[in-house]
Each structure stands twice: as structure tokens, then as C-alpha cells.
């Protein structure tokens, strides 16, 4: 898994609420048996029309926006448990997603793939959208160690929550598999002792 410590980047704004995993990666692209190539189809049906023509109005296609931070409306990632959504976000090149609320499963999937979900207050989210509107190249700094997100253009900052175990995993690029395998003796003891 990619390590994450600190990132300074401009951001791509997606001011839509309740973006579900079917928009992030439509089901017809879930037929692969590996994790590669999902980035190409991120937000497929919003980025392209049915004939494959680029929808130039869509922020990801708008040349004035760039960067490895995605800023999205409330309740990002609701819907299905498909981790393909996190692979698509990661595969496209995003390292951070900022929103005022994340759906549970997406949030976990993102963390398991080195993508940091940063939950900010609704007012700070509005602030970010407004800053990007004023200056699409406005840089945002995300510091995982300090758990802060800062709009460098106006120096406004907010702190964000993250479970400290998950934080350590991200900083070191660890995942849960190694940890759980290391707990095998405890797990076997639990199996032996349990009464029902």
C-alpha cells in the first residue's frame, strides 16, 4: 500500500451530494479480476457521453482544474461495497478525497488503498469550493501527521479525525492482513474457548 504523510496539491471540485459508488465506477466495469485500469473508468458516465465523447463541462475534464485532491459534496461514496470505487479513485491519481461526510464502507476501502478520506465541516467544505472557484489552482495542504487541512491561499485551516491505528498504517503503508495474521494464535484460542 502507498504511504501517505503530507500532500500539497490543487484540487478538483465535484459539488454534488450523495455521489454513489455506481457513479464512481459503474457496474459494467466490475468484470476484471485484478485491480488495474479502474482509474480510466472513474465517473465514466459523467465524464463521457454514451458515444464516448468527452463531456467538457464535467470538472475532471475541465482543463482549469488539476491535482491529486478530489473535493466532493456531502455523503460521498454511498451505495455498494465495491472496493473498485476506491481502486478507481486511486487509479485516476487521487490521493485525498475531501467531503463533509463519507459513507462507511467507502471510507474503509479508501484507507485500505492508501487514499486518505478527509472529513471537514460543511462550512469548511463550502469555503474550499469557493476558493477553488476564485482560483482553480489554489493549493490545499493535507498533513496527516498533524491531522490538518489548510487552504494555502487564505491560510484557513481545519483539523480532521482519523483513527490512530489507521493513521499509523497509512504513514507506514501497512495494511490489516499482516496484523491479523500475526494474531493467529489468539484467534485459534478464541475458536477453541468459545461457548455458545
Amino acid at each position: 500500500m502507498d504511504k501517505f504523510t503530507k500532500l500539497t496539491s490543487s484540487a478538483i471540485p465535484l459539488e454534488i451530494e450523495n455521489i454513489d459508488t455506481d457513479q464512481i465506477i459503474p457496474a459494467r466495469f466490475l468484470k476484471a479480476t485484478d485491480k488495474k485500469g479502474f482509474g480510466e473508468n472513474l465517473f465514466r458516465d459523467w465524464r463521457f457521453d454514451k458515444n464516448g465523447n468527452t463531456n467538457t463541462d464535467f470538472p475532471l475534464n475541465d482543463k482549469k482544474f488539476s491535482g491529486s485532491i478530489l473535493v466532493a459534496g456531502d455523503n460521498f461514496g454511498c451505495g455498494s461495497s465495491r472496493e473498485h470505487a476506491a481502486w478507481a479513485v486511486h487509479g485516476y491519481g487521487f490521493k485525498v478525497v475531501v467531503s463533509s461526510f463519507f459513507a462507511d464502507i467507502f471510507k474503509g476501502n479508501a484507507l485500505n488503498n492508501g487514499v486518505l478520506p478527509v472529513q471537514v465541516s460543511p462550512s469548511f467544505l463550502k469555503n474550499i469550493f469557493e476558493e477553488i472557484k476564485k482560483n482553480p489552482e489554489a493549493d490545499i495542504e493535507v498533513d496527516l501527521e498533524a491531522q490538518t487541512i489548510t487552504l494555502l491561499s487564505n491560510q484557513q485551516s481545519e483539523s480532521f479525525e482519523i483513527n490512530s491505528y489507521k493513521k499509523t498504517c497509512l504513514i507506514n503503508g501497512y495494511d490489516d492482513i499482516d496484523f491479523l495474521v500475526s494474531m493467529k494464535e489468539e484467534i485459534q484460542a478464541f475458536e477453541k474457548d468459545r461457548v455458545e
Partner: peptide, 12 residues
């Protein structure tokens, strides 16, 4: 659960 978690349950 997501696929990373499917792998975790496979493993442990």
C-alpha cells in the same frame, strides 16, 4: 465488506 477485508477474512 470491501475486497481488502475479504482478503483479511480469508487470512484470519
Amino acid at each position: 465488506i470491501g475486497t481488502s477485508q475479504v482478503a483479511q477474512v480469508f487470512a484470519s
